[in-house]
């Protein structure tokens, strides 16, 4: 019962936070609401037995990405930017489309047929701990994609510097 109560808490608050992220006029407020959303997301991961990911979510989003956002926003003076319209004129079309997508998701989810169950049951993970199990998998079976991901990050680091550098 308590589990369901928590779930309903997340189910109600997270879409609201998400909506707040996209609806605030001041980007700084958006980023702050995004921070709240990330913390809730991390908590939701705990419910789903993904402790490692919960930690990563907090560290990566709350600790890195959103701080980066704040830095960049602070760097620019956007006084006049805040004066204009919040949304484009065609927003009703987009709204209709979004509702359509939600309905499609619900339709798809309600017809969902579960696939075969894998070997990592809750008991198996408990015996090994989540992080260890994930690490073993990542550095054996998914080693190559892992290296590719590191390369992507390297490119992102170099690319961001090249793009943002003043040409003079």
């Amino acid at each position: 019962m308590i589990l369901q109560a928590f779930f309903w808490y997340f189910a109600i608050t997270m879409p609201i936070f998400a909506f707040l992220v996209i609806s605030r006029k001041n980007p700084v407020h958006c980023v702050l609401w995004m921070l709240v959303f990330s913390i809730h997301s991390a908590a939701l991961f705990l419910f789903l037995n993904a402790e490692f990911l919960a930690a990563v979510e907090l560290i990566l989003y709350a600790g890195a990405v959103l701080v980066l956002f704040i830095f960049v926003i602070m760097m620019m003076s956007m006084k006049e930017e805040l004066a204009g319209e919040l949304v484009i004129g065609e927003w009703p079309i987009a709204a209709a489309l979004s509702i359509g997508v939600v309905l499609m998701f619900f339709f798809g989810v309600s017809n969902f047929a579960k696939g075969p169950s894998g070997p990592y049951t809750i008991e198996a993970i408990k015996a090994e701990t989540n992080t260890r199990a994930l690490g073993k998998l990542l550095f054996t079976e998914y080693l190559f994609p892992f290296e590719v991901a590191s390369l992507i990050l390297l490119i992102a680091v170099v690319g961001a510097m090249v793009l943002a550098k003043r040409k003079d």
Partner: peptide
């Protein structure tokens, strides 16, 4: 799905690139 749709809506309608 709901959160995805909200994010999508935000992407489609907001003028501010940060958002």
């Amino acid at each position: 799905g709901v959160i995805f749709a909200v994010g999508m809506f935000g992407f489609l309608v907001r003028r501010n690139m940060f958002v």
